[in-house]
C-alpha cells in the first residue's frame, strides 16, 4: 500500500463535503488518508486553517479508511471556528495533524452510559459505537440547550440500546439536564459499569460529582488549550490528583473523579481578552467585506444602467 505524501505543496487537506448539521455546527468530510487509516475512537486532530492561523484541537466524529477521509464536527465559537465554518466543499485546510491522544479504552465493561452534551456528542459517538461493538449495553444520554443543539441523535440511536434526550429549555424531548436523566437511571437501580461524558466543562463536572458518590467509574474527554499536540509544549496540562498531566499525550480522556475541573476552567480562560479581540476583528472584517460586496453590486448595477 502506498500513501501519498501529505506534505505542503504535494498534499492539500481538501474538504470533500461540508454541511451544517445544526445552527453554528458544521460537519466536514476531509481528505486525510494517513489520519483516516489510523484514527481510533477518542482521538482528535489539530488543524491550522491558513498561514496566519492558530492551531486548535478538534473532534474526529468518524473516519473512512477506504476513502481516506475523516469527519470533523465544528461549532462556531471563536474566530478560528467561525472562519473554518465559512469554508465549503472544494475548499481546503492548510494543516491537519493526527490522530492525536490516546484512543479510548474499549472493552466489554457491561453497561456503558455515554453522555454527549452539545458538540461533545461528536467525540462521544465513535467511542459509544466501539463500546457497542465490544458487546456492551449502551445507554446514551444526549443533551443540548435547545432542540437545534442536540446533534447526531440518529447516529447515536444506531449504536445504542436506549437513547434519552434532554433539552435545557424543553423545546425537544425531556426538559432538563443530562444529569437529571443520569440521576433517574441511578435511582431506578440501573446497573452502570462505566460512564463516558463529553461536553461542556460544567456538564462533565456535574456528571463526575454525581458518579463519584455512587463509585461509578467515569471517563471525561477534556479540551484544554493546546498547541502542538505532541507533548512538547505542556500548554494542555491538566491537574489530575495534584499532578500535571498532558491532555495530548496522557489524555484526552481522564478519570473524571481525579480531574481538577476548576483549574481546567481557569486555564481555559487565559486568553479570553485576546480571543474576544480576534473575534471582534473578524466580525469587523466580515462587515467590511459585506459592505464592499454591496458597494460593488451597486456600482456594477449603475454601470449596467449606463
Amino acid at each position: 500500500m502506498t500513501i501519498k505524501a501529505e506534505s505542503k505543496g504535494a498534499f492539500v487537506f481538501k474538504i470533500v463535503h461540508a454541511e451544517f448539521i445544526a445552527p453554528g455546527i458544521k460537519r466536514f468530510i476531509i481528505e486525510a488518508p494517513r489520519i483516516a487509516r489510523k484514527q481510533r475512537p477518542g482521538q482528535f486532530v489539530i488543524i491550522r486553517i491558513n498561514e496566519n492561523g492558530e492551531r486548535i484541537p478538534l473532534t474526529i466524529e468518524r473516519s473512512d479508511p477506504e476513502k481516506g477521509t475523516v469527519n470533523i464536527v465544528v461549532q462556531s465559537i471563536g474566530k478560528t471556528t467561525h472562519l473554518l465554518n465559512s469554508l465549503n466543499t472544494g475548499d481546503s485546510i492548510m494543516d491537519i495533524v493526527g490522530p492525536l491522544g490516546k484512543p479510548s479504552e474499549i472493552a466489554n465493561f457491561g453497561t456503558v452510559v455515554a453522555i454527549g452534551g452539545g458538540v461533545g456528542t461528536a467525540m462521544a459517538y465513535p467511542t459509544a459505537a466501539a463500546m457497542k461493538r465490544a458487546g456492551n449495553r449502551v445507554i446514551t444520554i444526549l443533551g443540548g440547550r435547545n432542540k437545534d443543539l442536540v446533534i447526531l441523535e440518529r447516529e447515536m440511536r444506531e449504536v445504542s440500546d436506549t437513547v434519552f434526550v434532554t433539552t435545557d429549555d424543553g423545546s425537544y424531548a425531556d426538559k432538563g439536564l443530562v444529569t437529571d436523566k443520569l440521576r433517574q437511571l441511578i435511582e431506578n437501580g440501573t446497573r452502570i459499569d462505566l460512564v463516558l461524558a463529553v461536553g461542556p466543562i460544567p456538564m462533565m463536572r456535574a456528571v463526575a460529582d454525581m458518579t463519584r458518590k455512587e463509585k461509578i467509574h467515569t471517563m471525561v474527554s477534556l479540551n484544554p488549550i493546546m498547541i502542538d499536540g505532541t507533548g512538547m509544549c505542556g500548554g494542555c496540562r491538566v491537574l489530575v490528583e495534584g499532578k500535571s498531566e498532558f491532555a495530548c499525550v496522557d489524555g484526552p480522556e481522564f478519570d473524571a473523579h481525579r480531574v481538577d475541573f476548576a483549574v481546567l476552567v481557569q486555564r481555559n480562560s487565559m486568553y479570553r481578552d485576546a480571543e474576544k479581540r480576534s473575534m471582534d476583528d473578524y466580525k469587523c472584517q466580515l462587515e467590511k467585506a459585506k459592505n464592499g460586496a454591496i458597494h460593488e453590486e451597486l456600482t456594477s448595477a449603475l454601470e449596467a444602467k449606463r
Binding site: N52, E54, R55, I227, M232, G235, A274, E275
Partner: peptide, 24 residues
C-alpha cells in the same frame, strides 16, 4: 508557562505578531 510553550507561541506561531497572526 513552560519555556517550550512560551517559545512555541512566539517562534512557531508568531504570537508576537498578534493579531496579524491568530495565536494569542
Amino acid at each position: 508557562y513552560s519555556a517550550n510553550e512560551f517559545l512555541t507561541r512566539i517562534n512557531l506561531m508568531h504570537a508576537y505578531e498578534f493579531p496579524k497572526y491568530d495565536e494569542p
